[in-house]
Design a protein around this nucleic acid. Structure first.
Lengths: 386, 386
DNA sequence: GTGATTTACTTTCGCTGCGAAAGAATCGTG
DNA sequence: CACGATTCTTTCGCAGCGAAAGTAAATCAC
């Protein structure tokens, strides 16, 4: 009655679909659920009863609907008991581990970070277990852990290859699981962010959805029919071979004129440094470009055109209903958004539907939140597989 | 018992799924069907019985399976009675109407063509009705008509806009239906070809599938989850704004360096004519390029690189399990296939899964066959909507 | 206020369609 | 010919759904 089920596995298919609908799409009345799931009103009474009795759902007060014009018996919205259990999400970078605690709804209730001093798998697992213990003190009822790592991850458990950690076939999930006793999911960081946005973010309820991340590298995630399309090369190497302009700049990472060379933050900084002799942060470069300083302006303009081309190609070929730009490098949109949009329009059919483009600056805690969503999925779907 | 049902509508959902599986994937035993549809053996007996009794399916002799090593009771394959009814498919071009008669399996059993002397909607409908009457003489039991037209088609019934026919909002389906008394579906020609390949061709059983046609223009069709993604711009204008090389050739049709300018047959002929002063057919140009004549070779080489870039972009962003190149312009692959493949590889991640690429030269009767598949779909699914 | 109306939810009942399990049919093998 | 293997059929029970009738709780009309 009071403690939440350890898993949603015992739920029937119908019950689970109701629970997921409520989880993802906020409080919903039974009638509304019946419409969305194409079920009869009677079925909804039947399906929701055990969910409420098990403490998974609860009836909430009508959240002050101002439009009280409707007559008839007021509806009784149902909501998940989001605070009944918590989830941990970690993002492992070269020199730091970022952690967040979230509710079942994926709302972040605490954040944390600790320096990573060793790349030894056991010591990394130790650090993750320590951070888990610290966070567990203030947030009991932890239901699972999600870990996002840049690199190739196999079976949502083993880090197949991670260049920046110098790892190969490290069973990270098992290492952390035996230290914490909690279910652990490990996933590629971009994949985790994509799942999070698909379930709780910009891609909610969409059939075709794309996430493009700009940061230290380029990330790409395609969601079709609510499921992320897995692909072999999500090994931190996206965009190195997407040639956008064969005459584009040559940078240490990525082929000449590739998306990485034109857009990734290190490449932008490299280009400006090579041209001006001064090393500046990404934000400084954007500010300088905005202020009209020639070289940064040229580099940023070229990047904006590249981004426009990239988005246009994605829109033309994958036909998503929405494209989300995320990562630390989307500040580009604030400075050169118009150039991006003009470039997109120029490379799209005039009659084509405009691409809904959403921008979301993400920091490392957002990546950690993405990983936490994987833990939520495991609890809800009862499997580590998507 | 002998005549086939006028529609599959009275079938239950389970029965229809069985019928479609058999229709699309050849003769299948009940056990095999049970595996594919994830149903029990008992359910299959129940579902197939009424289908056989209504004459829709029949038990066929085990088609001489050479591998008789298996012991146990032999399986009893079921197949649709493909010859029980016929379907008509038409492809309307500027000066000619092509027609085919197909079985339920979409095997062409007759083909036909007649010159189109007028673009008046009523006269075009008259001609289609005449051709239908002729073909009906030798092929009774016609169950439906599909018509493929270049241009924008709305609701699978009305030609919203067709530049080459100078039509606007012509209710072609109704015009032909009142003359023939048969159910009629009208669809964009590329869309029809895509549906045909999805159901009975290269895209059979695939979840993500792309068709790229090269002909008088460029056509593109994306199939996700077995369904074609409809899009607004399939108005014969695909690829005019897909800029592949900003410094590419300028042609009468399409933006500079666009897919249309680089690949479409008229653009290739235009480029060679402009450079050499001689007008030649597409096939002559391919032959000349193959023989080493400089200008045609350069144009063809540039086209091959463009096609490679295009395919790589499609593979990178839409991640299809297969790409089908169709149309009259795929002869390019025979002459410069290696260049295309090299270009694809260069713009794909080295670890990425190779793109299964299939080539299919299509003539106008293949386009007509595509339209006939739409008529099959209507009978089978019971609706004009996909 | 008081009853009519509207909307939301619950209860009951019967039916569809599935799987499990046992049985029948039909082949190879020893 | 007996035996096991494999496919198909039959029987039975049950989960899960919708239809329809009933109940609850609000507004509206007077």
């Amino acid at each position: 009655m009071t403690t939440v089920a350890a898993s949603w596995l015992p739920l029937s298919a119908g019950e689970r679909s109701v629970a997921i609908e409520v989880l993802v799409n906020g409080p919903l009345s039974r009638t509304e659920l019946a419409r969305r799931l194409r079920l009869s009103a009677g079925s909804l009474t039947r399906l929701t009863k055990p969910l409420i009795e098990s403490g998974l759902l609860e009836e909430v007060a009508e959240a002050g609907t101002p439009a009280e014009g409707r007559q008839g018996r007021p509806s009784q919205p149902l909501d998940v008991v989001a605070e009944a259990c918590s989830f941990l999400g970690f993002k492992v970078t070269d020199d730091m581990v970022y952690g967040v605690v979230t509710t079942l709804r994926s709302d972040v209730v605490a954040r944390h970070h600790r320096p990573l001093t060793s790349h030894d798998p056991a010591e990394v697992a130790d650090l993750l277990a320590e951070m888990t213990a610290e966070l567990a003190r203030e947030h009991p009822h932890l239901a699972g852990i999600g870990i996002g790592v840049g690199g190739l991850v196999e079976g949502r458990a083993v880090v197949g290859e991670s260049p920046f950690l110098h790892w190969r076939d490290v069973p990270l999930a098992a290492l952390v699981q035996e230290r914490t006793g909690l279910p652990v999911v490990v996933e590629n960081d971009v994949a985790a962010l994509v799942e999070a946005e698909t379930w709780f973010g910009a891609g909610r309820g969409l059939d075709r959805f794309v996430v493009l991340t700009i940061g230290a590298g380029i990330g790409y995630g395609l969601v079709l029919g609510g499921k992320r399309v897995p692909c072999v090369e999500e090994n931190r190497g996206f965009g190195r071979h997407w040639i956008i302009n064969p005459n584009g700049p040559l940078t240490p990472d990525g082929e000449r004129g590739s998306a990485v060379s034109l857009l990734a933050i290190p490449s932008i900084r490299y280009q400006v440094r090579a041209a001006t002799g001064r090393d500046r942060t990404y934000e400084e470069i954007l500010a300088a470009a905005s202020a009209g300083e020639p070289m940064p302006a040229r580099v940023v303009d070229e990047a904006a055109r590249a981004l426009g081309t990239l988005v246009a190609q994605i829109a033309n070929f994958a036909m998503p209903q929405k494209i989300l730009l995320a990562g630390e490098g989307v500040g580009l949109m604030d400075v050169a958004g118009n150039t991006v949009r003009e470039t997109i329009t120029a490379q799209r059919h005039p009659l084509a539907a405009p691409v809904p483009l959403e921008t979301k600056v993400s920091d490392f805690h957002d990546w950690a939140r993405g990983a936490a969503v994987l833990a939520i999925q495991v609890l809800v779907l009862g499997t580590a597989e998507a």
